[in-house]
């Protein structure tokens, strides 16, 4: 559990897209606080602060001491709306929490000891199946991440939730099976890859092998059709 971050906010009395857009023009973003059996509270935050905190990558697993016009709220970010092109934060949902609150939260998975995996040493590909795992825990004891060990894993092996170390009081939401977090795949066409690596000139000839051959045939066939069409018009 990392240290709480602090933000300041201002309450807003109006809701809707008009005021939301007006706020965004002024460099602020709309947000809402709800939960703990209290009335929802519409607020606005400084856009830059929200973006910095979001891009730090721990917004959904770290509690926030939110200061709304002098009132302190202990909250957890539950949802963030992003602009599709710029990826700037447009709106944030905050959940009021207390030390008694039990929540389900997506916690990032960190795969460790990649250099101690024989499968990855032999050019295996690490295929991450789940970047986050849904965990049930107390709101004040959310783990920053869970660690899964890759040591000793061969190609074709998988790392499951049972391989991860979960802190006390933390349980996965999916508890009926030992689900996969990552697998180590065999690279495609390993035999063909080796000669390509050996000689630099081989890259240009790559089109002649495997998938490249299909494309070459297709292009040739289309070119032929084009010529026929042109001939017909004359």
């Amino acid at each position: 559990m990392s240290k709480n971050y602090a933000m300041t906010a201002v309450a807003r009395d109006r809701a809707g897209k008009g005021i939301a857009r007006a706020l965004r023009r002024e460099g602020r973003i709309p947000a809402v606080i709800y939960g703990d059996s209290k009335e929802p509270l519409n607020i606005s935050l400084i856009s830059n602060d929200a973006n910095v905190e979001y891009n730090r990558g721990q917004m959904f697993t770290t509690l926030c001491d939110l200061d709304v016009d002098g009132d302190k709220h202990l909250v957890l970010a539950r949802d963030v709306q992003l602009h599709p092109v710029t990826d700037n934060v447009l709106h944030i949902d905050f959940l009021r929490v207390t030390p008694k609150t039990k929540i389900v939260v997506d916690v990032p998975v960190q795969l460790i000891n990649e250099d101690q995996s024989p499968g990855l040493e032999e050019k295996g590909i690490l295929n991450v199946v789940r970047y986050t795992v849904e965990l049930r825990c107390s709101a004040t004891a959310i783990p920053d991440y869970i660690e899964a060990d890759l040591a000793g894993k061969e190609q074709g092996d998988s790392v499951n939730i049972s391989d991860a170390k979960l802190p006390e009081g933390v349980t996965p939401v999916i508890d009926d099976r030992d689900f996969t977090l990552a697998t180590i795949m065999t690279p495609r066409k390993l035999e063909e890859l080796e000669p390509v690596e050996g000689e630099e000139g081989a890259e240009g000839e790559e089109g002649a092998e495997g998938e490249g051959a299909e494309g070459a045939e297709g292009e040739g066939a289309e070119g032929g059709e084009g010529e026929k069409a042109e001939g017909g018009d004359e």
Binding site: I125, P187, R188, E206
Partner: peptide, 27 residues
Amino acid sequence: TRHLRRQGKVWIRIFPDVPVTSKPLEV
């Protein structure tokens, strides 16, 4: 794939589903 030397994994998230027509030359 050529730059990654076929090691990484690639996903294509777009699909060409719009047919584009054209008239022959000099028509």
